[in-house]
Each structure stands twice: as structure tokens, then as C-alpha cells.
Design a protein around this nucleic acid. Structure first.
Lengths: 242, 242
DNA sequence: TTAAATTTAATTGTCGACACTTTAACTATT
DNA sequence: AATAGTTAAAGTGTCGACAATTAAATTTAA
């Protein structure tokens, strides 16, 4: 049971991503594999991307590969220069800060809208999820990792509950792959397990009460706290390095 | 002088867009022309896009055209379905509302960051712009249209002043083309000329004071008021139609 | 020896053609 | 006449090759 959970968790987000459609074309498959490889660091951040090499590696034509690259660019995982080529995006502290600022704004708004638009079914579903998270806290092993994915799942459900397609596309479609990339590459896979859970519970309560204003404030604080937590860890890391 | 202004204004945003690079490749040019055609309504909203037809019309290969389509999809001007094709996005009232909600969140944050990060040069530049807007209010002809572009220019400068590349890409790179499309297709080219100017002035003052919190609140109100204004106009339109 | 200029190699952008899927038209059956 | 099944047409996805540009290597000049 738990083992299966871990197995699935590795690709949790892509599979659970509501904006993530089943791959039908070969360009889709190449895109997904490349996305995974970049997010997980198998293709190093900042490294140059060679179209002929990758096309051979995936055994597809360059046209197909370029279609996949085009989508990677869409979610900011690579950067392209005309007549020069593509590079995997670099993970900088400034970049991390920028993403969290965007998330604070967008997810705050999503949370407000969720409080205004959420259906009863969605609320029940969300409460069930939080209950599950509460029980899993008792487990000794894998708490951090589960909480990590649980955190993402919570945020996902809130975003979906906003019923705003633009927000859903922006957050789930493009931004979250970058978020995951940063978390993995900086080794931040256990952010504030217990505190985060309590914050989730408070946010959900505000949503249930239909208090959009409070829900937005709480979500922004939640994300802001997560950002500060990561910044602090990075600071420690750089101190130890010296 | 004024005539030249008008001439430029027609393509104001694309040219002034900081994320808008000079077209070097032919796919770039096709993309820009298609973008303009869709935003201006020359290619009807909701209409199907035929790759062979457009390729012939622009005298390029389908590969080049598809590269251009890929970028149109990136800024949500078209929607693609695998093995079926692309359609120009439809302008619905719900869609308009969604965009304004996203803008309220993102530009609010951009405004907060601008208050924290703006340089003296940027402040001087912005004050000069507002002074120019104040004088142009005296002109009899073209006030509305100028204010329209002036409004966009103000928002642009605020977004740039946030110094957050993610925000700049999201807002200037993709979202604003949709915003312009909606304004043009719904015929909303003169939103609250005088009121908007005063609001701009207040926002700039908050930025100069370094009061990020207030700057964000004012910007959100400003965009919210603009949204309500448009919603009201649409309501009147649908009433007259009956 | 260094720096500039030229040539070479490699990579990206673009093209036309083919394979597969979807949609439309047509035929056959109830 | 209406529906189901079949066939034909159109459109999208993919491929390999050529053209244009950039980066590297070599040569030449100071």
C-alpha cells in the first residue's frame, strides 16, 4: 500500500495534473519524458540542448522533437534563442523568489475564488483528503515525502476549485513544473510537514465559510511562509559550504 | 505629430512590448502577422484555422506555419486539439472576467514589487509619462483612444518596474494580447478616461512612497473598477439588443 | 605570441512529401 | 426514410533533406 504510494508519487504531479492530457501524439510522449528528465535533473540545469542528439536518442525526427521543445519552452523549462538553440533553465535563488511571488498572487486569488465558487462535492472531497493527511502523519517513514505530495495535492484542488480556466492553465499547466524542478534540485522535499497541515486546515475552513477575503490572506501567508522556509534552508546550505 | 502618434498606436503594444523581440526568423513574422490579425478580428474569433490555407496565404511551408501556431497557442489566442486542428479563441463574458481576475492578482503583486524595487530613473520616466497624459487630456480629438494606449503604457511600466521576469513574461508576453483582443472585439476602447488618470496618479504616488501594500491595493481596485466598467457596458449592450 | 580574418564544421530554420487520423459523402440495409 | 456501415476526401502528424546561420578551427598578418 505504502510502497505503491511511493511508486506513484514519483510521477504524482504529471499524472494528477488536471491540465495534463493523455499523450496521444509521439511529440506528447517526447515532451513528457523530457519534462520529467529536466525536472528530475537527469538533464542538467543550464545545459545546452542538441536537437540532433536528442532526436536520435528518442528515435524521432527533428520536427517532432522541436514540437516537444516548443512545449517545454511554454512552461519555462527551457529557453530558446533564434539561430542559436535551447538551454535548460537555470535554478537561481532569484528565480525561486520570483516564482513564489507569482504563486502568492495567483494562488491567493484562486483561494478567494474557491471560497466563492466551490461546490459541495469539492468540499467533501477536500475534507476527505485532509483527513487522510491527518492519519498519515502517524506514519514513521516517508512522512516528509508524503506531506510534500500532499501539499501539492491540496494546492491543486484549491486551484481547480477556483473554476477559473486561466488560473488553472497558468498554475497547473506551466508554473508547477518549475516549482517541482526547484524543489527537487535544491533538495527541498520536506517543507514544514506539521505546520503546513494546520495551515491547510485553516484555509479550508475559510473556504467552507465562504470567506474569500480571509481565504486569500491565509493562502498568501501559507505560501509566503513556505518561501521563507526554503530561503532559510538555502542560506544554511551556503553557510555550510563556506 | 498627433497623426504619427495614431499611426504608431495601432500597433502600439506589440512594438512597445518589452518581451517582444525583433522578428528575425520567418516564423516570427508569420506569428506577428497572425497575432495582429486575430487580435484585430480580421480572423474571426472562434473560426477554424486551416494549416494548408494559411501556409499558402503567407507563402511558407506548413512547418513554419506550425511554429507560428505554436506561439499563438502559448498566448492563448488559439486552442489546438490533437489530430483535429486549431481554432481561434472565443471571446466570452466569462473569459473576460477570468482574465481580469488574473490581472488583478498579478498586476497587484507587480505594483507591490515596483514600490519596493523601482529605480529613480524609472520613477522619473513614469512621472514624465503621466505629465504627458495630463496635458493630452486637453486635446479634443482622440482623447479616448490615446487614454486607452496611455493606460496600457502605464501598466506596462509598472510591470517592468517589478523587476520580476516571471511576472513580466506572463503579463506582457502572453496575457496582454488577449486583453487587447477582448477590448477591441467588444469595442471597449475608451474606458473611464479621466478617472483612470487620477487612479494612475495615486498609484504612482504610493510607489514613490515605497508603500508596497497600498500600491497593491490601489492597483487591484483600479483593475477591478475597469472590469466593472466593462461588465456594465456589456450589460447595456445586451439590453439594447433585446 | 597575439589578434584578426578566412575557412570549415556543426547546428538551426525551412521545405516538400508521405503516413495516419478524422471528417464528410456515399452506399446499403432495415 | 432513417440508420448503420463503407468509402473517399481533407487535414494533421511525422519524416528526411536542403538552405541559412552560427560557432569552431585554421590560417594569415602584425
Amino acid at each position: 500500500m505504502i510502497a505503491a504510494l511511493f511508486l506513484n508519487c514519483r510521477q504524482f504531479m504529471p499524472n494528477n495534473n488536471p491540465t495534463h492530457r493523455q499523450a496521444v501524439t509521439t511529440a506528447d510522449k517526447v515532451f513528457q519524458q523530457l519534462q520529467f528528465a529536466i525536472v528530475e535533473g537527469e538533464i542538467a540545469a543550464g545545459s545546452k540542448i542538441s536537437e540532433p542528439e536528442l532526436a536520435k536518442r528518442f528515435d524521432v525526427s527533428r520536427a517532432t522533437l522541436r514540437e516537444a521543445l516548443s512545449r517545454l519552452e511554454k512552461c519555462h523549462l527551457i529557453v530558446r534563442k533564434p539561430n542559436v538553440g535551447a538551454r535548460v533553465v537555470e535554478c537561481t535563488i532569484e528565480g525561486l523568489l520570483e516564482i513564489y511571488q507569482v504563486r502568492e498572487a495567483l494562488e491567493g486569488m484562486a483561494c478567494r475564488l474557491a471560497a466563492e465558487n466551490m461546490t459541495k462535492e469539492e468540499i467533501v472531497d477536500m475534507q476527505a483528503m485532509l483527513d487522510m493527511h491527518a492519519k498519515s502523519k502517524a506514519l514513521k517513514d516517508g512522512i516528509a515525502y508524503y506531506q510534500e505530495e500532499g501539499d501539492l495535492d491540496f494546492h491543486y484542488k484549491v486551484i481547480l476549485a477556483s473554476h477559473n480556466q486561466q488560473l488553472i492553465d497558468l498554475l497547473c499547466g506551466q508554473l508547477y513544473h518549475l516549482v517541482r524542478m526547484y524543489r527537487i534540485q535544491f533538495g527541498m522535499n520536506s517543507p514544514r510537514a506539521t505546520k503546513a497541515f494546520n495551515e491547510h486546515a485553516n484555509i479550508l475552513q475559510a473556504i467552507i465559510d465562504g470567506d474569500g477575503e480571509l481565504a486569500e490572506i491565509l493562502m498568501r501567508r501559507h505560501i509566503g511562509a513556505s518561501r521563507k522556509n526554503i530561503e532559510q534552508k538555502i542560506k544554511q546550505l551556503s553557510q555550510n559550504a563556506q
